[in-house]
Design a protein around this nucleic acid. Structure first.
Lengths: 247, 247
DNA sequence: ACATTGATGACAGAATTTGTCAGGGTTACG
DNA sequence: CGTAACCCTGACAAATTCTGTCATCAATGT
């Protein structure tokens, strides 16, 4: 194992472990303690907060909040975690809700700036409503992951979305819309959008959408007015007004 | 700059940038393009999802930049996120619950093995029950973060836990217990434990625990029998039996 | 005091790294 | 179709670096 590898290993190891002695690390990585000291010194010079305690019972540890380093989460995963945290802390008043929100802000903080802005914007477009009767059929409202990705892309770039929609009576129509927001009204998900052809704000249940695709030739600017008009015109969602854009 | 430093720099650089060419990186880091290719190869071998596109306009990029990478989460945050995901997917049947669980497993996968095992064991000991009436006073059941850390430590090492407990009538007693599990019965949290002095399985509400401390001289082996006996003997929690150890 | 553990310096031999040269692929574009 | 811009990989010798050993000093708990 080369030094570069060992440094990365050492970093992961220190971050995940409570505390260890240099000698222990050395035997685990198969090098001499002196080398570990040198490596730790290198990491320190790079700004990593590694501290060491002398004396029996001492050892070295990574001062940063010790815990888990989450590597490479996808967009769907971040949004889901974010939604889960919001939903459960709102609905059941979990302890440690502060921990959840700090976890989320850490995730957002670690993003590239442009990316973080997009994600924040996406999150702001997702409205969490109170759960309705929880005993609706289990498969209702399921949203396939690719639909979220498509929505996210459409939303951040400002591209229209086209899909086939099956309405309450089972009639299938082809729609072209500007997606402006998502509404989570568990267990049913809705797309809040402006229907381009009818020029009207409308909501579409996600489980009735099929064959979605991006409309590259349709451009629009996301606006909250469409969402507000939908929320205000439909009595079902009046209670949500005012809550849709909090954090 | 040595190779180890450069690898760490390269990783941070790739994570923060949308896409670049190898040549550009090489000139920024002051080495030859061949070296950068070698470094990228090394990072790939370590499992980093770096992809490259050939052709004009191509370049290399860190695939994780599309989401979140290298977030450092504390123990409380991980457990909270994990609980949130379980709670919300169980209670309101969220779409993308698969994404949440894959996020969690990625987090766990990035841990050192011993640490991951501990955390998994901890998560298995946390039982999620259906939320009771949601309108209990908002501060009931809050668990201070340090209590979780203490519990986690006690549980993973197999050390007893001592604390002061205020029972329903307000009487304060000193307890010594073996903690075997946590029960989340929103919004109230319970410690499922065996009372050492009385030699009886018992539950303790977290918000009635004060001045917790580890009992270094008391060792025990975590067992699910204690938890099962508690769940079976108390009619309130009969519905939970069978669900307490799923993933 | 004493054992344990961290931190640092010096040095020679060993191992790795680096740049150069060379080739083989893909992809976009005119 | 050919060219240019890219990524990817192999080989090799020189130069750099890394590593282990030995030694010393400081801090801490028993």
């Amino acid at each position: 194992m080369s030094r570069g590898d060992r440094l990365l290993d050492l970093l992961e190891h220190l971050r995940g472990v409570e505390a260890t002695t240099v000698e222990q690390i050395a035997s685990e990585l198969g090098v001499s303690p002196r080398t570990i000291h040198r490596d730790i010194g290198a990491l320190r010079e790079r700004g990593h907060p590694i501290s060491g305690d002398a004396g029996p019972g001492g050892g070295v540890r990574y001062d940063g909040a010790r815990g888990v380093t989450a590597v490479h989460l996808t967009l769907s995963e971040v949004v889901t975690v974010w939604l889960s945290a919001r939903l459960s802390s709102a609905a059941s008043d979990l302890p440690w809700s502060g921990a959840a929100s700090s976890a989320l802000s850490k995730m957002l903080a670690s993003l590239p700036q442009t990316r973080a802005r997009d994600l924040r914007a996406l999150c702001r477009r997702v409205i969490v409503g109170p759960p309705s009767s929880p005993s609706i059929s289990a498969t209702a409202g399921r949203a396939p992951p690719e639909l979220l990705r498509l929505f996210e892309q459409a939303f951040s770039v400002g591209t229209g979305l086209g899909f086939h929609y099956r309405d309450r009576e089972g009639r299938e129509t082809v729609r072209r819309v500007e997606p402006h927001g998502l509404l989570v009204h568990s267990p049913v998900w809705y797309v809040l959008a402006r229907d381009i052809d009818k020029d009207e704000p409308r909501t579409f249940r996600m489980d009735r959408i099929s064959r979605p695709r991006l409309l590259d030739d349709v451009q629009f600017r996301p606006s909250r007015e469409v969402i507000e008009s939908i929320l205000c015109n439909d009595n079902r969602w009046k209670p949500l007004i005012g809550s849709w854009d909090r954090s």
